[in-house]
């Protein structure tokens, strides 16, 4: 009787057994890596806008405060996008013929709002509130990065639930004093641990409730 299995069958069996272990592992690891990669989270990807507004120029070089345009940030859930009128407060007098600003002038002339493209888009089941963060020691750059150094706006952080929880579980590591909230170049001091604990008490943050589902979801 002829051999049922060729000499190579043994190799295939071994490879097959190896694949049984290696394949699921590779898939799990690569899947995990994919969901954390900027390819999936969009971190660092510049979003094209109808007008190439530069935060680096306005907030960085000119030093205009975030709240000059985002007027609602201390009062409402949404920080607020400036109406065309805000752009024209300065651009009615300077760079009045700039080609780049033609859509702004058209917007004012025709009373049509500019359609900016959203850069930070949270899932609809998340109820994020800007005011509660900026009035409780969380600065702009903790989530938005050093905006004053961004020519075009890009996401600086993944804004995933795990990322949010990382801070909600231990906010002290990111808290800053009132005077530094709008400083986008703020860096943690060496003794952030100690200062953070003091700030936790200063702002009256109740850490034990920060991870309740209803804090972010309804």
């Amino acid at each position: 009787m002829a051999q049922l299995f060729s000499a190579r069958a043994d190799l295939f069996l071994r490879l097959g057994l190896l694949a049984l272990v290696v394949l699921p592992l590779t898939m799990a690891v690569s899947g995990f890596a994919y969901y954390r990669s900027s390819y999936y989270t969009g971190v660092g990807a510049y979003v094209q806008q109808p007008v190439p507004f530069s935060h680096r120029h306005h907030a960085g070089e000119l030093g205009i405060d975030c709240r000059y345009c985002h007027t609602q940030v201390e009062k409402a859930a949404f920080a607020g996008l400036p109406p065309t009128e805000t752009c024209m407060t300065c651009h009615s007098q300077i760079w009045t013929n700039a080609e780049m600003l033609a859509p702004i002038r058209a917007s004012l002339a025709t009373n049509t709002p500019i359609r900016w493209n959203r850069v930070h888009d949270l899932a609809d089941y998340v109820y994020f509130d800007h005011s509660v963060h900026v009035t409780n020691g969380v600065g702009c750059s903790s989530c938005h990065g050093d905006v004053a150094d961004m020519p075009l706006m890009a996401k600086a952080e993944p804004l995933t639930m795990g990322w949010c929880l990382d801070c909600h579980r231990d906010p002290a590591k990111n808290l800053r004093p009132e005077s530094e909230i709008y400083n986008t170049a703020w860096e943690k001091p060496a003794d952030q641990r100690r200062k953070g604990r003091a700030l936790l008490a200063h702002y009256g943050i109740r850490k034990d409730h920060l991870t309740d589902c209803s804090v972010c979801h309804r």
């Binding site: 859930a77 949404f78 996008l81 959203r118 899932a123 609809d124 089941y125």
Partner: peptide, 10 residues
């Protein structure tokens, strides 16, 4: 549920 048929600001 990431995109729900509801209105959000802007």
């Amino acid at each position: 549920m990431v995109e729900q048929p509801k209105l959000k600001p802007y």
